[in-house]
């Protein structure tokens, strides 16, 4: 049963059609890499435990033969205990190092004034407002140029929200009284779902938007037009 589920999990992971594993930016790729790395390292643990678990329960379960046996007292085993202390530490270090590197990268906001597109994102119950540098404002649709640096400045008018476009990057909270920043470089044109990820009240579920990543030329055109 459980193995069957595991196999389905593996199958779906390799299929990679899950949004967070199908990234369209460097940031999201790094995060997808961490997800997969974590998954495979942890599969080692699950594998070892499963093997021991199945072996021991099958081999030592009560049968008519051993029913009245009295197992020998066994205090412990120093070597074994050292092994299962040290091995997990090694596995964890393998996960911790990339985690530290990628976490630092994800929070690093580059200051590259020329190229960068700045978008002011305002969350409020229950809609988003995206404001571009030339004053253009949209609500349901976030339009971004491909292959250009985008920095979101996240502000809230009321409660906490969280700005999330799963294929573009992990989420970042939108907190009243604070300005959070998030930087991404979309590298593929297309239309992607955006959502509010922090529970914010009655219509939290409906606080969605679409993200359109378009060519740089189309973007400039769209930005200067009156079209929504």
């Amino acid at each position: 049963m459980k193995k069957l589920l595991m196999l389905t999990f593996l199958f779906l992971l390799s299929g990679c059609n899950l949004r967070t594993l199908d990234p369209v930016s460097e940031t999201a790729s790094d995060q997808a890499f961490l997800i997969k790395l974590g998954f495979w390292i942890m599969m080692v643990v699950v594998g070892v435990v499963t093997i021991l678990f199945v072996a021991f329960t099958l081999k030592y379960r009560e049968t008519d033969k051993n029913r009245y046996d009295i197992p020998k007292h066994e205090e412990g085993n120093r070597t074994l205990e050292i092994i299962w202390t040290v091995l997990p530490i090694i596995l964890l270090v393998c996960l911790a190092i990339p985690t530290v590197i990628i976490t630092y990268q994800a929070s690093n906001i580059s200051a590259n004034p020329e190229e960068t597109v700045h978008v002011n994102v305002t969350g409020e119950q229950f809609k988003w407002t995206f404001e571009y540098e030339n004053g253009k404002k949209t609500h349901e649709k976030l339009v971004l140029p491909v292959n250009r640096d985008v920095i979101f400045h996240l502000k809230s008018k009321d409660v906490i929200h969280s700005f999330w476009v799963p294929r573009l990057a992990g989420k970042k909270d939108v907190i009243p009284g604070t300005v959070n920043k998030l930087e991404v470089v979309p590298n593929k044109t297309g239309t992607y779902q955006g959502k509010c990820a922090e529970f914010c009240g009655i219509l939290h579920a409906d606080m969605r938007f679409t993200t359109e990543v378009v060519s740089q030329q189309d973007f400039e055109e769209w930005l200067s037009s009156k079209k929504k």
Binding site: L34, G38, F39, M42, V45, F53, T99, Q105, A197, E198
Partner: peptide, 29 residues
């Protein structure tokens, strides 16, 4: 006996969640 594999599966997703940058994807989902 049911606890051991079940809890291990919960534990390993816990370690995956601990990976801060990855958690930005998992968080609140």
């Amino acid at each position: 006996l049911g606890f051991i594999p079940t809890f291990v599966m919960g534990g390993v997703t816990g370690v995956m969640l601990a990976s801060a940058a990855a958690d930005m994807q998992y968080h609140d989902t």
